[in-house]
Nucleic acid binder design. Structure first.
Length: 414
RNA sequence: GGAGAGGUCGCAUAGUGGCCUAGUGCGAAGGUCUUGAAAACCUUUGUCCCGCAAGGGACCGCGAGUUCGAAUCUCGCCCUCUCCGCCA
């Protein structure tokens, strides 16, 4: 959510940003509603003032008559005001955040590669896909998954089940040692959490709704963890708050029915460790924290000995709340491409406004800035682990960092 | 799932239609005193909106309603607690 003051003063900037993000908004309508709203507010305030004075001198002749008149005017005025507010709020909530100046304008073609790390493996044999490797070693059961769970259902078995558990635990431990607060977050969330983090109204098709109650399944721990501090006023000295959050994640993947239907790439249910930061309203500090979040996820991929690249994402590739985004893509041999495994964003105060998260800074209160980045998401990362670390004899090496926790250093046929 | 109790300015409490411009205690901040501190005493102490300002308005869980007037009465919702039942 952008503040109405900001929109009033930066109409062109906001219009340009929406255009570059390829979202449609009606700024003239918004500014017109805002003007009407303020006029109405002034009117009803002076009526309230009169009402208050009147209520204190009840015996005054004619007070009752005038009181009734005021009551009626206030009722009408409030009715109109509520209607206006709702309309304005609806439109306002659809205005996307404004990207930072360094963000390239355009779609996928405008994304900028910032760096790559590691060597893309060159196999002197025909490498197997993670699906073939899984069959060979009985690691994943997609057929029974589909039977029991439905489309895109899966079971992880044997060493894959252990490996996933270990990766999640190891990541959580690693970031906890860096001073992040470990937290296990609920995946069942109310609509305000989804709306507040900016998943809604845009991503409604992407989220599972439970029955007809106010209960949804979050697609990322960003939702519950950011909403944790909704309606809070934090102390400046306690910021930034850094979390390493664990949660199961649920995504409907609406609109991608034909896409990535094979294997572990696109699933309705997966497990993720997410880094979430709630910090001060200071863009320089936010950029430093953004780099820190980036550093963390790269260290994880490096320890897993996986080649990756980092992209600065273009305007049309960004989510509505985001002002700066890096994607980190890990090499997946069977796809012959770097594929998205982490996404690192600064939201500015967009989410904090919607969720009402503030901090006290001297005499005033300000909205916080929020950031988040994936730490690890599995099973997707298993694709890279299995495929990149496969050997000529069909066995799969476990990265040194995970061997002790796994209790095995290789997945072999025997 | 059944039965009951309750949600008041950071915390704890008072408040049962106009004296509430929400009192009191604790906590916090500033000051006096002190070599320094403690104690004591004094002062201050929420959020949001409109406005250049002066000032005004809203908020007692949330939302409707009754009334000239609502923290207080009515209805709906949300949440918390206690007991019973069920359950990892």
């Amino acid at each position: 959510m952008l503040s109405i003051d900001f929109i009033r003063e930066n109409k062109e900037l906001v219009a340009e940003a929406a255009k570059n993000k390829r979202r449609k908004i009606d700024l003239d309508k918004i500014l017109d509603l805002d003007l009407k709203r303020r006029e109405l507010l002034k009117k009803s305030q002076s009526l309230s003032e009169e009402k208050n004075k009147l209520a204190k001198e009840s015996d005054h002749e004619g007070a009752r008559e005038r009181g009734k008149e005021i009551k009626e005017s206030l009722r009408k005025s409030n009715e109109e005001q509520t209607k206006l507010e709702m309309e304005l709020q609806t439109l306002l909530s659809q205005v996307p955040n404004v990207p930072l100046p360094e963000v390239p304008v355009g779609g996928e073609e405008a994304n900028q590669e910032i760096k790559t790390w590691g060597e893309v493996p060159k196999f002197d044999f025909t490498p197997l896909s993670h699906i073939e490797l899984s069959q060979k070693h009985d690691l994943v059961d997609l057929a029974v998954g589909a039977k029991v769970s439905g489309f895109r259902g899966y079971f992880l078995k044997n060493q894959a089940a252990i490996l996933q558990t270990v990766i999640l635990f190891w990541t959580m431990q690693k970031l906890t040692q860096k001073g992040y607060t470990p937290i296990i977050a609920p995946s069942i969330v109310r609509v305000f959490s989804l709306f507040g983090t900016g998943q809604f109204p845009w991503g409604e098709g992407e989220v599972y709704k439970l029955n007809d109650e106010d209960a949804y399944l979050a697609g990322t721990a960003e939702v519950p963890v950011t909403a944790y501090y909704s309606d809070s006023i934090l102390n400046e000295k306690d910021l930034p708050k850094k979390f390493v959050a664990f949660s199961p994640c649920f995504r409907r993947e609406a609109g991608s029915y034909g896409k990535d239907t094979k294997g572990l790439y696109r699933l309705h249910e997966f497990w993720k460790i997410e880094q979430v930061i709630i910090g001060k309203a200071d863009i320089e500090e936010a950029k430093k924290l953004h780099e820190e979040l980036q550093q963390n996820c790269e260290e994880i991929l490096q320890a897993l000995e996986l080649p990756y690249r980092v992209k600065l994402m273009a305007t049309a590739e960004m989510g509505e709340p985001q002002i700066l985004k890096y994607d980190t893509d890990t090499w997946m041999p069977s796809r012959e491409a770097y594929c998205e495994t982490m996404s690192n964003s600064i939201m500015g105060d967009f989410q904090a406004r919607r969720l009402n998260i503030k901090y006290r800074s001297g005499e005033s209160t300000k909205f916080c800035y929020t950031l988040n980045n994936t730490a690890i998401a599995s099973p997707r990362i298993l694709i890279a682990l299995l495929e990149n670390h496969q050997q000529k004899d069909g066995s799969i090496n476990i990265p040194k960092a995970l061997q002790e926790l796994c209790g095995f250093d290789t997945i072999s046929h025997e």
